[in-house]
Amino acid sequence: MKLIAATLALLLPLATFAQDQNQEESWKPASAESNAYREYRLKMTTPPYGLAKVKGLIKKNTAYMEDVTIMSSKDYMSLTLREKFTYHMINPESYSQNCDVEPPIQDEHKKVFGHLPDNYAELNWSERQRDFLQANRDSVMEIIKESANRSKRIGLNYKMALVEIKAVEMVPFLVEFFKRDHKDLDILTVLMEFMAETKYEPFVKSVSYTKLYSKNSTYNAYLLFNQANEDLIIQRAMGMYNAAN
């Protein structure tokens, strides 16, 4: 152990400390428009399927497990497939470890990120929940389509589920959904995550991939949202879909 023998007795208060004079890291607040888009990005979709029943069971199980809600096997097995979907979308039952707050992202509404944000706070899906999504991927995709068409929105939890199951079959739907209002740039992120996850060669060889997913990228890397990038992402994603079908 390299622990030096000395314990530094720090006898002098701030006034005489030789504090570094380097400039502090500066956090510039984002614009109102950027902040509003941030809020929009983080919105979840609450599925309607058996919602009251599922919430009732969550409440019952929360009391049992203090403040961690893991539904008992008996209660879980009593749910229909759609009710299980609702449960998973509104109640992650495992833990995650997070950075509490990121520096404000400037002009977030003009950026297409390589990864989705995380909004389950210190919780995340358990293996049981991920297994459900994988084991029922066809149903999950149908339910998400149906629910998104009704609410006119694909919540962050839905997009996370699609990435989790690599729902390449959803590409035409997502492209069409995005073109309805061009607002939710994270739909383009989902398309790129599909291409990155499946190692779709035309994408892996692209400048976009290098910028977002290569060794020199960072987790928060992004592309600027413009017509050329939109067209390129959609064209490649459709190419991947067509190649797979």
Binding site: A15, E24, V101, P104
Partner: peptide
């Protein structure tokens, strides 16, 4: 500091004196 350490029985703790200190970063939420 080393001289002081010779007279301290407990080397597993570092003493921080009462005082005013700078913390945080500009604009950090």
């Amino acid at each position: 500091s080393l001289l002081i350490s010779l007279f301290l029985p407990d080397t597993s703790f570092v003493q921080v004196p009462t005082g005013n200190y700078w913390v945080g970063a500009k604009g950090h939420a």
